[in-house]
Amino acid sequence: MASPSQPHRATHRFIWILPLVIIFLSIAGFYWLKVNRADTPFSAPEMQRWNVQAQQVEWITAQAETDVFGQVTSHGLATLTSAVTAELLQLNVNEGQGVSEHTLLAQLDKDDLLLQLRQRQADYEAAQARIAAEQVRYDADRQALALDEELLQIQQRKLRRLEDLSQRNLSSQEQLDTARIAQQQQALAVNSRRMALADHPNRLRQAEAEQVRTQALKDQAERDLIRTEIRAPFTGRVAERLASVGERLRPGDPILSLYDLSNLEVKALLPSSSLARFRQQLANPEQKVLAHAYIDGQAFTLHLDRLAADSHNSRTGIEAYFRFQDAPGFQNLVARLH
């Protein structure tokens, strides 16, 4: 009778033989493939080629070019304000509207200023009347002084006669005292008249100073009346309306802003790498730095006018200002410079 452990031993031997058989078969297959492989002919790799075009070049004298973007601005921007306290009655222009020099842009109420002008005119005429009255008083004082001096001489002669009669006991003491009092009073009147005549230049200068003061106030009132008409200081274009009809304006309150068309320029930021070249060209008055700007699809010719005095730390260049030869008529536009 067979032992139960024999099938287990046969299975254990088979597990160890199976891997050896697989390895042997793998080596035999690899060797057979190596012996029977086909010979592949060697082919050299093709060199890569590119299509090129030839162009004839020639030597020319040219200047360096730079492309930048800028903004059309105007250093002739004016903010027109009210010079008086008055109500805004009319505002005759709109934003973007072109105006000529001396065009009436706005009208302020002038009724209160007309009343003030009448008061100033009255004060001025009163000052003139005081000067005339002072001259009349001076002439009257001169004539009165001659009469007072003559009366003083009469009183003095009368007093001397009474003193002579009193020495001979021909007049009373009361008559003598009365004559002395009258002589002293007349002397005081002569002194007062002389003082009035001596003070005439001072009173005249005071009256003339008052006339100058009232004349200045009258002129100021006339100027304030003229300033109720807000007119264009130059030919330009309205940038912004800053007040509305019906507002009560005070001196300094803005009404509108206006920019000068003849002072339009383009402000652009030039790179730091080009600053030395631009400064050198600006130093030569015979050499202009020209630029071609394209604004709203239109071409304009400009020239470099100046560079900014300093550059901001947040920028990598410096601002340059280009002047138009033919201005476009609008500001705050973006321009591409070449």
Rank of each mutant, 00 (worst) to 15 (best):
M1H: 04
R13A: 11
I27S: 15
L33C: 06
K34D: 02
F42Y: 05
Q56M: 14
V57C: 11
E58T: 15
E58F: 14
F69V: 15
G70H: 10
G76R: 08
L77R: 09
L80T: 02
A86K: 09
Q90H: 09
Q90V: 07
Q107I: 03
L108Q: 00
D109I: 04
Q119D: 03
R120I: 01
Q121P: 08
Y124S: 08
Y124N: 07
Y124L: 12
E125I: 06
A127Y: 03
Q128H: 08
Q128E: 08
R137W: 00
R137S: 05
A140H: 02
D141N: 09
R142M: 01
A144D: 01
I154R: 02
D164P: 05
L165S: 00
S171C: 06
L176W: 04
L176N: 00
Q184W: 12
Q186T: 10
N191R: 14
R194E: 07
H200P: 00
R213H: 03
R213P: 00
R223Q: 14
D224E: 14
R227F: 15
T235E: 03
T235L: 00
G246N: 06
S257Y: 10
L258W: 02
L258R: 12
N263F: 05
L264H: 04
E265Q: 13
P271T: 02
S272K: 08
R277C: 01
R277G: 01
A283L: 13
V289A: 06
Y294T: 15
G297I: 10
D305L: 10
L307T: 11
S311Y: 02
N313F: 02
T316L: 12
G317Q: 13
E319D: 12
F322W: 11
R323C: 07
D326M: 09
F330Y: 12
Q331I: 15
N332Y: 13
L333Q: 15
A335F: 09
R336K: 13
L337C: 06
L337R: 05
